[in-house]
Computed example of a mutant assay.
Amino acid sequence: MNKVDVLIIGAGASGLMCAANAAYRGRSVTLIDHANMAGKKIIMSGGGRCNFTNMDASPKHFLSQNPHFVISALKRYGPSHFVELMDRHGLEYVEKAPGQLFCQKSAKDLLSILLTECEWSGVNISLNTKVVKVTDLGECKEVETNQGTFICESLVIATGGLSIPSKGATGFGYQIAEQFGLEVLPTRAGLVPVTLQPDLKAKFEPLAGVSCDVSVTANKTNFTEPMLFTHRGLSGPAILQISNHWLPGDELKIDLYPAESIYSLLVEAREKNPKSQIDKVLSQLLPKRLASMLIEDHKWQGVLAEYGNQAFEEIAETLHNWVIKPNGTEGYRTAEVTLGGVDTNYVSSKTFEAKEVKGLFFIGEVLDVTGWLGGYNFQWAWASGYCAAQYV
């Protein structure tokens, strides 16, 4: 029988953060995970360089049925706090896009810092440890595992969501929540590529690898970012962002050239050189393979002088309001996050303790909190882990 003050289940971003900070408070902390190593998703994120925070992180960048829930934690532990920790350890990082900080070399450097913090603070980490049963003993919790039984005053669930099951993701955290009477809101894959109907998929397959800046809209929400054609459908930052707002059956409205008015550009081009071929003009606005497909589809041929203003308006309308109806998404296999999760109305936004279950805490992605693409979800992991650590 192992007696500890704090037992944390899940050695991911939020679990590691919570463990180190709780141990620094003098609490005896054990961190367990069923995987064979800690921080698997940290290492693979951001193409192996981990977009570990966003300096612009604010409540508006998070989705939750209870949008006020994130305010307290983000105020108490913001991006500058985590950057300060990284600076103390000498992590080299770069700002690849405004506000988005990535490890300069490897995400392994960041994971090493978190593990060092756990070592310095005295955290005991037990990997390959599978939970068999959790029992509420009133003043404490009993957690039976394949590595023995733990008795703890505070039990922290930091098991994440369902995204990327190949890295060990399971619905364990939701099961614990339901066991103790907390509601779990419906879950679905978030920040995920979309797939296309077979006919569209076959049509766009030759465009795999083509990327262009677009403005994409679904359900009154809009993002202007790059979009990428893939062998299965559409991806890239614009699609990943909008996937959090897209629902099955919805269309995506895509502006293929959001920078300027295509109508105005065509009129101007006709005035300057009426003998220019329209297909050459359009090919300068869009990636060549994409332009060629659209030109062939719509039979946009001939010189500009042959086209009147109404024809230009129709071309502009087609390119500024390109409508696609996805077949679905690639699902949890490639999703970066899980939408939905433990209903935050059952959890204190200050302590992260379940309101009706003393000593039971939920942090990170297992909660119904989902950030935008761009480092926001990691910032939520750090903030929720740190804030819970002050009360476990």
Rank of each mutant, 00 (worst) to 15 (best):
K141L: 04
K141V: 00
K141T: 03
K141M: 07
T145I: 03
N146F: 05
Q147F: 02
Q147T: 07
Q147L: 06
E153K: 13
E153P: 01
E153T: 12
E153L: 09
E153I: 02
S154N: 11
L155C: 09
V156M: 05
A158P: 07
A158L: 12
T159P: 00
G160H: 02
G161E: 04
S163Q: 07
S163I: 07
I164H: 11
I164P: 00
P165D: 05
S166K: 14
S166A: 09
K167F: 14
A169P: 05
A169K: 02
G171T: 04
G171R: 01
F172N: 02
F172M: 00
F172D: 08
F172T: 03
F172I: 03
F172E: 02
G173Y: 09
G173D: 12
Y174M: 04
Q175F: 00
I176M: 11
A177W: 07
E178A: 08
E178N: 11
Q179P: 11
Q179R: 12
F180D: 07
F180Q: 10
G181Y: 10
G181C: 08
L182M: 15
L182Y: 06
E183W: 08
V184D: 04
T187H: 05
R188K: 14
A189G: 09
G190R: 04
V192M: 10
P193A: 11
Q197W: 11
D199H: 14
D199K: 13
K201A: 14
K203M: 15
K203L: 15
P206E: 12
P206M: 11
L207C: 07
L207R: 13
A208Q: 14
G209F: 12
G209M: 08
V210D: 12
S211F: 10
S211N: 13
C212I: 12
C212V: 15
D213R: 12
V214W: 13
S215Q: 15
S215D: 09
T217D: 10
T217A: 11
N219V: 10
N219F: 05
K220V: 06
K220A: 14
K220Q: 15
N222A: 12
T224G: 01
T224E: 13
T224Y: 13
E225T: 00
M227F: 06
T230L: 06
H231Q: 08
H231Y: 04
R232Q: 14
G233K: 02
G233E: 08
S235Q: 08
G236E: 05
A238L: 05
I239E: 01
I239W: 00
L240H: 11
L240G: 06
L240E: 11
L240I: 09
Q241I: 02
Q241L: 00
Q241Y: 00
I242A: 05
I242C: 08
S243M: 07
N244H: 10
N244I: 00
H245M: 06
H245R: 04
W246T: 06
W246P: 01
W246S: 05
L247F: 12
